[in-house]
Amino acid sequence: MTVEALANALELSALVVAEPEREIDGVYIGDLLSWVMGRAKSDNVWITIMSNINVIAVATLADVSCVILAEGVSLDEETLAVARAKGVNLYTSPKTAYQLAAAIAALPV
């Protein structure tokens, strides 16, 4: 499934759409950035409530397919500009991390 298809299925609000055709593979949920870098895999969807600029660096380095900010978290314009420059797919949703993960698990593959 592509990032774009996921965003449509989960009704995510797009903050930065850099590479909508990227394929997703699995999900990782976490807010401790080093933990995410240690455990998330390439192409994972990363769900977090962390909302500072380091999220963009971690998303880039861990090579996740997209970041979903849960519980209505958003980012300031400066951070969004960095995400655009680095080509990070970034979405937000009012749902909790659990609700998002459950919704992804229920999707037809």
Binding site: L33, S34, M37
Partner: peptide, 15 residues
């Protein structure tokens, strides 16, 4: 509060 300091830095470098 920025999401670091979890005590995973050096272990990740080794990993």
């Amino acid at each position: 509060s920025l999401g670091f300091g979890a005590g995973m830095g050096l272990p990740n470098m080794k990993r």
